[in-house]
Amino acid sequence: MKSLMELAKIREEAMKKVDIRNDREGTRIVVGMATCGISAGARPVLMAAVEEVRTRNLQEIVVSQTGCIGICRLEPLVEVYKQGEEKVTYVEMTADKMKRVIAEHIVNGKVVNEYTIGSVK
């Protein structure tokens, strides 16, 4: 170690690795991962969320999973909990849709209406 800069760099890299264990308040992205969700393709959606959070180096975001959310016909389901805002439920998700949700909703704060449960006919 030759400088504080060097230490800070290692720290920044390592932070991403252990961030998940910190206590924090922030946004939660929850993917429905019951049998129905998994068979409908929830796993690639989950992985896309993790991947996207990492590449964008987003802080204060938890990607987690949950059991059956209930409307199995619309799986894979993703719920986004932002502090102080109503929960948003996205349906029939794919990895690409997930990336768009992160870009528009998580980063820019605009809900992607066309993917939400309300837009299903």
């Binding site: 991403k16 690795k17 998940i20 993790v50 991947e51 990492r54 990607v63 987690s64």
Partner: peptide
Amino acid sequence: MELYRSHV
């Protein structure tokens, strides 16, 4: 670096 969605 590897990133994981869950740590045990």
